[in-house]
Design a protein around this nucleic acid. Structure first.
Lengths: 204, 204
DNA sequence: GGTTCTAGATTGAACGCTCATTCTATGTTA
DNA sequence: TAACATAGAATGAGCGTTCAATCTAGAACC
């Protein structure tokens, strides 16, 4: 019965192994797409045999799902950080530059687009993506509401949600822009984004 | 030597056959992704044998390239239409609703995201996509400049280009939003987009 | 401390299948 | 008859997945 016991180091090791596979898979998916990347490629990149991957994941789909789930953290952390700032509004505006830079990072963007494209046709992936998005939106909405309240505005929920959508569309759209037009003037775009976000946050 | 002659009906027929393949391929790519869709599937959807597809396209990559090239038309036509309108600015703002609707169309969005994701890793596709984007940007920039001039603003090229990037990011981002949050309030988002575009066009 | 036992980690070959592509044979049409 | 359209089988490679066989490290016992 107590055969299920795992020493901490064993658990750690298993976790590290899973992480190793996920990192290798992320690279392969980025370079060849979900269906273009083979288990053989992933196992080679992870430094283990193909068969062994199936000790940690049921199948290829499960690897995709795990990768999607990992990506939830960033925006949540950011949103919490902003709320903790002295002047949340200016902290957010300040952070736009970093957000633009991040969206234009080709590796990040490539994998995220791969995930969204997969979500557009794979219901299982779609569900994970949508749940993650729901959590992110809720967090961003809270931050937005705090900013607007501090400035004396009292928006209804719908208005806040719509602001969230516009912000999300702008930064997610930038991932596509970075691929379609890699020569864009990033600094100028960052300034324009900053101005637009400021207008959005301070409008009556 | 003159064996290369084709009667008009022969040419037409061949063109129709190519189109038939491209439509079938677009559907398959949308549903299964570039690498997930097989020639067998495409040939079935196109109502011909797998081997016969190779009479019209060198290989699968060539089909992808042809599909990407077909998609250039829409924005060019739109941009020209707007410029022809009496009040270009109001015509553009008016058209935002339609643009939002289009970006949220799941089939269109799915295929376009598939293409961008492929461009992120396939240099051949990337080149086609970037050239098409360059043409679209130029057209939109001309329209934008006309609007701003009519209102007495004299922006430098960089400012116009940056406006184009912001507009493009918003609408392309909306394709992602439609997948990540299908329940969004589309009408409210359309209004918010309209207001943002108006601000962009009329700002000092 | 040395030996045996054991359970999980790991491998690599094997399986059945599907892939993109090629080839050959047959139909069609002018 | 000549040239092209088309089908469908053939090819060889590679796919995701399974599995029997080994390895390894530590627990249990002497």
């Amino acid at each position: 019965m107590s055969a299920e016991y795992r020493s901490p180091s064993e658990q750690q090791r298993a976790e590290a192994r899973r992480e190793q596979i996920l990192c290798a898979a992320a690279t392969c998916f980025r370079n060849h797409g979900f269906h273009g990347a083979s288990i053989a490629q992933i196992s080679k990149a992870a430094g283990m045999s193909a068969g062994h991957i199936y000790h940690y994941f049921d199948n290829k789909e499960a690897i995709i799902a795990a990768i999607v789930e990992r990506d939830l953290e960033y925006l949540l952390t950011l949103s919490a950080q902003l709320r903790a700032a002295r002047d949340t509004r200016e902290a957010m505006i300040e952070h736009v530059t970093e957000g633009v830079r991040r969206s234009l990072e080709p590796d990040d963007a490539g994998l995220k687009l791969e995930v969204v494209a997969e979500a557009a046709r794979n219901p299982q992936v779609a569900e994970i993506v949508r749940e993650a998005d729901r959590v992110c939106r809720a967090s961003l909405a809270t931050t937005l509401r705090a900013i607007r309240r501090a400035d004396g505005h009292d928006d209804d929920d719908g208005a806040i949600d719509t602001m969230v959508e516009l912000l999300a569309a702008m930064f997610e759209g930038l991932m596509i822009r970075g691929i379609r037009n890699p020569q864009m003037d990033r600094a100028a775009v960052a300034r324009r984004f900053q101005a637009t976000v400021r207008q959005l946050l301070t409008q009556p």
